[in-house]
């Protein structure tokens, strides 16, 4: 089945306020089950940034895939991508800071026509650069076949989703044929040295559950992935990050349509882990939208919840002093970050 974006289908859920309303109303946002009450009970008065260590740039919603669980509602039919002018603003602001890590995400960031120019310019700032590469992009067009070389030449850390080491679960979530193409792309990255000991080229994989359940223990899943991918396909990689599916956008749609929404939210809430709160990713990340607006994280971005101070919520008025200590805007979706072992773009957090 071909999935189209919520926006293309004119789904009510394409409107972020509709999503927020569902999240607030179905599970009581007032009273006991309110996320801020949970963090208060865990001894934190207000969630605030510690210091920005990761500058995460969403280069656009355009993607060659249309995964069923995508919290970005990305797809080939999405045309919103970052302009070179906004990228230049990011470069100028980064130049004035010492934020050590730049995380490029999307959609498929490589589809932005200025992607390679931007990476080359970022490289001059001498920071650690990560790209969230969906793997199939490498094989989607001959013009992208040399991406492993481009990544390697710029010593970019590659972080790629592979929901499972088997075809059936991967294709159900990410689309027919995605597993085989992902395996081929991983082999190409390995050939270029990615994931190999001593190469210095980091290849990390992301596991996220193929349905309405929480991820298992990161370490044991990593062992399974390493064994299965090596035995069957000769693939190596560095680390596996387990990420919880957030009740946002297309995953929210899946939860509602499959009748799993209430149970899933209850599971997130009952699995609240106070130890994960201090490490949720908004405490060390700033997320930049394709149009330059600033968010506490990529999920808040998709819910259109900008950083609190509306005079400082765009890259054009980036104020590191404010952002480093800002109060985070939270909502019921935040339970996705604190359930079980916790979840962030870098995997489990407790």
């Amino acid at each position: 089945m071909i999935v189209k974006s919520l926006k293309f289908r004119n789904s009510k859920l394409a409107d972020s306020s509709e999503q927020i309303e569902i999240l607030q109303n179905t599970i009581q946002d007032s009273g006991e089950d309110n996320f801020s009450n949970y963090i208060k009970r865990s001894g934190i008065e207000k969630l605030t940034s510690r210091k920005i260590e990761i500058f995460q740039i969403n280069m656009g919603k355009m993607c060659n895939q249309t995964c069923k669980h995508c919290h970005v509602d990305a797809g080939p039919d999405r045309k919103e991508i970052m302009t070179r002018e906004t990228m230049q603003m990011c470069l100028d602001k980064l130049f004035e800071t010492d934020i050590p890590t730049i995380d490029l995400t999307g959609g498929a960031p490589e589809l932005n026509p200025d992607f390679r120019w931007f990476v080359t310019e970022l490289k001059k700032l001498n920071r650690h650069i990560m790209v969230r590469c969906n793997l199939t992009i490498i094989l989607s067009n001959p013009g992208f076949n040399d991406l492993p070389d481009f990544f390697a030449e710029n010593n970019i850390e590659v972080v790629s989703s592979l929901p499972y080491y088997q075809k059936i679960n991967t294709d159900r979530q990410r689309g027919d044929g995605v597993f085989e193409k992902s395996i081929k792309a991983l082999q190409m990255l390995n050939e270029r040295g990615y994931g190999k000991q001593g190469s210095g080229l980091i290849l990390n994989l992301v596991y996220n559950p193929s349905g309405a359940f929480l991820p298992g223990p990161q370490h044991s899943l990593e062992n399974d992935f390493k064994k299965e991918l090596m035995d069957k396909y000769g693939i190596v990689f560095n680390n596996l990050f387990t990420i919880t599916n957030m009740p946002v956008s297309r995953f929210l749609e899946y939860l509602i349509d499959s009748g799993n929404y209430v149970d899933y939210m209850e599971k997130l809430i009952t699995s609240f882990n106070a130890a994960a709160v201090r490490n949720v990713m908004c405490t060390n990340t700033i997320s930049i939208g394709w149009d330059g607006y600033l968010y506490d994280c990529d999920f808040n971005q998709m819910l259109d919840m900008k950083v609190k101070d509306n005079l400082k919520d765009h890259i054009s008025n980036f104020d590191l002093n404010y952002l480093d200590t800002r109060e985070i805007i939270t909502g019921q979706h935040c339970f996705g970050c604190t359930a079980g072992s916790g979840s962030s773009c870098g995997g489990a957090i407790s």
């Binding site: 088997q166 059936i168 559950p209």
Partner: peptide
């Protein structure tokens, strides 16, 4: 069934 999925077991 739920727990086994969360522990990373395959359907097989």
């Amino acid at each position: 069934s739920h727990d086994a999925l969360e522990k990373g077991c395959s359907e097989e």
